[in-house]
Design a protein around this nucleic acid. Sequence first.
DNA 1: CCCAAATTTGGGACGGCTCCCAAGTGCCTT
DNA 2: AAGGCACTTGGGAGCCGTCCCAAATTTGGG
Lengths: 337, 337
Amino acid sequence: MKKHQTTIFDIAKELGISKSTVSRALTGHPSVHKQTREKVLQLANDLEYQRNMFSIGLMRKASNTVGIIVPEFSRSFFPQLIIGAQEKAKEAGYNLIISQSDESYETEVSNVKVMLAHQVDGLLISITRETNNFEHLKIFQRKGIPIVFFNRVCDEMIVPKVIVEDQEGAFTAVEHLISRGKRRIAHLSGPESLSICKRRKAGYMAALKKHQISFDEDLLVHYDLTINKVKIYVNYFLNLKERPDAIFCINDPTAIEAIRLIKETGLRIPEDIAIIGFSNDFVSSLIEPSLTTVEQPIKEMGRTAAQLLIDQIARDVADWKAPTVVLKTQLIVRNSS
Amino acid sequence: MKKHQTTIFDIAKELGISKSTVSRALTGHPSVHKQTREKVLQLANDLEYQRNMFSIGLMRKASNTVGIIVPEFSRSFFPQLIIGAQEKAKEAGYNLIISQSDESYETEVSNVKVMLAHQVDGLLISITRETNNFEHLKIFQRKGIPIVFFNRVCDEMIVPKVIVEDQEGAFTAVEHLISRGKRRIAHLSGPESLSICKRRKAGYMAALKKHQISFDEDLLVHYDLTINKVKIYVNYFLNLKERPDAIFCINDPTAIEAIRLIKETGLRIPEDIAIIGFSNDFVSSLIEPSLTTVEQPIKEMGRTAAQLLIDQIARDVADWKAPTVVLKTQLIVRNSS
DNA sequence: CCCAAATTTGGGACGGCTCCCAAGTGCCTT
DNA sequence: AAGGCACTTGGGAGCCGTCCCAAATTTGGG
């Protein structure tokens, strides 16, 4: 069924030399006669020889592959980030296995097992909105395989992490709304379990406090990031006795959906109600009104995470470091505020 | 540097039995005493034993992995498609290695080599806009590794392919513009080398012909799909002595960019100039005006391609088939036309 | 109670490659 | 002429599983 693959032995036989010599010629070992090397290289090329990663992996106990697990890639955030990670990984000679957990804890666990089975040399991961138990990830530490979190991180694990200035970004965003005269600012947040949400909420609270706006519990809502549930919460906000005059949304997809829903009701954005998002997705500048949002350096996050991972792989387990890199955010003011 | 990985030998030693027995217990071979099996399974679990894919791959000469190469995933099209492919692959017990060629022929060749080195059991690919030479892909056929094209296919290779009704879709789109009273319909197409562009152009021509609108060469332009070049061609169209009253764009990103540019000039869409795209990207319904476009079943394309590949892998090389599956498209009328 | 059959286990080759060690070749030095 | 050195090459073990074949053990029927 499977055709015979060309091996170094085939080349050796053909040239009447030993497989050792062929191997050396192919890997660029210096102690091979120039003529021999050239003959080997030529023949390898002619026969479309391809080194067998299995045997190399078996010897080296390393796959030169790193894995990345993201919750989803239907929106632009994670694909963008993967591009950055892929760049860096490639630069360092690593291949990238990508998989998506589909925001399901179960799928995440299964994907992690797949990564393990594929003998990845390291793992990049942004957890799902459901993930509360980290046993499946701790296995990596026990096995001495580095792991790096990005975006959605696990607080209880001491490993490298890449996040953005969520709190500062949120603070700036809310302060901006206040500067536009808004006083009843709602916050549509994500699951409380995600630290990213905690930090953005902290920024929201801090901004209110600084400007002596008292916090109204009615204006803070957590939801599970399922986009079609945005409707429930937007309606809830709109039907409050004292309607909010602005909504700070946990991310851009949420904000975009909110805008869509609010436009349907005939309310004006931003006059009646301002909307602000987080992340500066590609779409955000295209919608009507264009979305004010907090830009995060997405590709940069991917690059940084990959770099941290590669550094960690190069280190001995005993020397593992666990920096948390915090990237800058920037407020992009557009027409929704 | 690398911690010792638990092997079947460790388990065997611990239990005082042979590695053969451990292997059999682990793989579920029937001829193992129940007690022995249980002890092995228990210990394997305790030690967090993980089968080494390298050695298995070395024996089996199969990796249970398929690769997918896409030109880019900064827009929603390919990520969506990958989701579909991933679903099917997983269902069939295959893992998916994803990589992007970044619309560069050179990167594509290098990615293909990586796939080969990783011993993928099959390859899904949508070629770059630059790819004219297919030697790097023909190697797969010679080596007996199945390959399936989707979306952007290679005409000269006889392998399974998944495309959509490009011609019919384009025909319907252009006919729709005609029904709205448009007569000077421009077509902003992609590289002539891509068969997808040829087919859409054919649909455009057919619609003009059917409605006895003579084809004006000035209204047909090919470009290389670099989004920031759209400006050049839109300007060209707008500055023609007889300005077109509609533009049929090769895809949604192009159309979206065209809308953005035209809005800047103050022209009204669709009154002065109608725009129509192809693919129904996620963004298309969100922009202002929302984009009329030809919807293609993106996920379905991914699923179908993966299925064709898996079928092919299961077949003996001599029985390889090369169906071309054509999926339906559907016109989605929105406000840009 | 013995032998054949069935059940369970062990031994070892194999897959493709790397790398260590030893051996072969050629040439220079004394 | 013989020893020594540098340069090349070959041989073989090992990486970790799988699987065939043979050996060991148990079972059961006569």
